[in-house]
Simulated scan of single mutants.
Amino acid sequence: MSRHIFDRDAAFTAVRAALLASYSGALASSRMSPIEALECIAAAMGSIYREVADAHLDPHGCQCGWAPHELTDIIALQQAIAANAACEESDELYDLLSVLPVGHG
């Protein structure tokens, strides 16, 4: 089984950009509050984890070698959200603090 070399920072930036676009779209097309839109993103991430984990539990599913461990995986996901939500330092090219809120109008 070969290991693919990847740029974690580039992957993070791409995923973050996609999530930010989805978040902005949800706010623009609904009357959700910012926290409700973020809760939708978190719920979607949970459902994606479930699908990926299920595919790896199926004996005929993915053969990459990863074995899900639901409890520790979910704790790791929660910790990643908490660590990044608590971080005050942002070196991203696009920062939500620079956006003027326009409301639902």
Rank of each mutant, 00 (worst) to 15 (best):
H4C: 10
L77K: 00
D73M: 03
H56E: 05
N84K: 11
A44Q: 08
C62F: 10
S24W: 01
D73A: 02
P59W: 01
E89Y: 15
A44G: 12
I41E: 13
F6C: 12
D73V: 01
L19C: 12
M32G: 00
C40T: 09
E70L: 01
I5L: 08
D91G: 15
A86V: 06
L38W: 05
Q79A: 13
R3C: 05
A86F: 10
A28S: 11
D9V: 00
H60Q: 11
L93D: 15
A37M: 04
G65V: 03
M1Q: 11
A14W: 03
L77Y: 01
F12V: 13
Q79F: 08
S22R: 05
E39I: 06
S98H: 09
D91P: 09
I81D: 04
D58H: 00
G25I: 01
T72H: 04
A55Q: 10
I5R: 09
S47R: 11
S2T: 06
N84V: 10
C87W: 10
G61E: 04
R16C: 02
A43W: 09
E89R: 14
L77V: 01
D7L: 07
S24V: 03
A83D: 13
A82D: 07
A67Y: 03
G105M: 15
P101E: 12
H60K: 08
H4E: 11
I81R: 09
A17G: 08
A11I: 15
I74G: 00
I81Q: 07
D9Y: 08
L77H: 00
D58A: 00
A28K: 13
A18S: 05
P59A: 02
L27S: 04
Q78D: 08
A76I: 00
D73Y: 01
L97R: 15
L97P: 00
H104D: 11
G65Y: 02
A53W: 02
G61R: 06
E70S: 06
A17V: 10
H56R: 15
A76H: 03
M1W: 07
S30H: 04
A18E: 05
A83T: 13
D54N: 14
S24N: 07
P68A: 11
L19A: 13
R8V: 06
D9L: 05
S2Y: 06
M45V: 05
D73F: 00
E70M: 03
A85I: 14
M45R: 04
D95V: 12
L77E: 00
T13D: 10
L93H: 15
A76C: 03
I41P: 02
E39G: 10
F6N: 12
F6I: 15
T72Y: 02
S29A: 07
A82L: 14
L97A: 14
A10P: 04
A18M: 02
E89L: 14
G105A: 13
F6H: 14
E70C: 01
G65D: 05
L71R: 12
A85N: 10
A28V: 01
E39H: 09
A55E: 12
L100Q: 11
I5S: 08
E88H: 06
